[in-house]
């Protein structure tokens, strides 16, 4: 069985700062693995640990060497890095087309990805891949097990969970509730030295210029001005102040 996990390297959400002059993310922002992708990776490793015939491949698009190294250290067998400036500037459709081209050649039984990335945050790459590759997709996965070659996934929906069964090939998009990603152990880091990482460009994937053309462009990023103001009750007696405060909190369903 072949499991492919899609991973992306993103600016650290805890450290990201915008440059107000350029509207871009400040250079030097630390890059980390997209959090949901690590949950997808962990799920894949857990499936691999339960059987002995799994090949686990980590795939990224854009600069993600550190994240791929981390995946190899966690337990992936090999990695594929799609590195191409044209594609890196693309929108989510370009990303999906490039990944679909690779996945057609690569083949897979199960494709795991994070539900969305913390930078672009469109959450559409998984579903777009499902359309392009004509395979089923289960989004918002918070539990997963394999029963006789069928994957039983629990999907988070409003006020509950939905249980879905899919037969491979299929795409699953992970949420953080799925598992607790492991740390790459030192043994894993050492073993990763001997694991291969292959690099691909748009040309290697046979992507035409038209296919690599983004139709969505990004405007500048900015931080919203903080406009919320506190409410100060003046010249009211304590009882009335308490009543007003309780009413205010109840209105907003805070109590």
């Amino acid at each position: 069985m072949k499991i492919v996990v899609l991973v992306k390297q993103v600016p650290d959400p805890n450290a990201v700062r915008f440059d107000p002059r350029t509207g871009d993310i400040q250079s030097g922002t630390p890059q980390v693995a997209n959090e949901y992708d690590l949950h997808a990776m962990e799920a894949a490793i857990q499936l691999k640990e339960r059987r002995d015939d799994v090949e686990l491949v980590a795939v990224s698009l854009g600069q993600a060497r550190e994240t791929l190294n981390r995946c190899l250290a966690m337990g992936a067998d090999r990695a594929v890095a799609i590195e191409d400036a044209t594609l890196a500037a693309g929108d989510s459709t370009v990303t999906a087309r490039a990944l679909a081209a690779l996945l057609r050649a690569e083949g897979f039984d199960l494709l795991l990805a994070g539900q969305e990335t913390s930078d672009g945050g469109t959450g559409t790459v998984g579903p777009q891949l499902a359309a392009l590759l004509d395979v089923p997709v289960v989004s918002n996965v918070v539990a997963l097990e394999e029963r006789d070659g069928v994957f039983v996934a629990q999907r988070e929906i409003e006020d509950g969970r939905q249980v879905l069964e899919v037969t491979p090939p299929a795409i699953l998009c992970a949420l953080s509730g799925l598992n607790e990603p492991r740390y790459p152990s030192l043994k894993g880091i050492m073993a990763a030295r001997r694991k291969p990482t292959e690099t691909k460009t748009a040309a290697d994937l046979g992507l035409s210029a038209a296919e690599a053309q983004a139709r969505v462009t990004w405007g500048p990023l900015f931080q919203e001005e903080e406009t919320a103001e506190g409410i100060i009750l003046r010249d009211v007696d304590a009882d009335s102040a308490v009543d007003q405060l309780v009413a205010f909190l109840q209105e907003r369903k805070l109590i």
């Binding site: 250290a73 740390y183 880091i189």
Partner: peptide, 14 residues
């Protein structure tokens, strides 16, 4: 080296 960075990051995260 990339390996030293990985060790540092793993221990830091832990």
């Amino acid at each position: 080296t990339s390996e030293q960075i990985q060790v540092r990051d793993m221990v830091r995260e832990f």
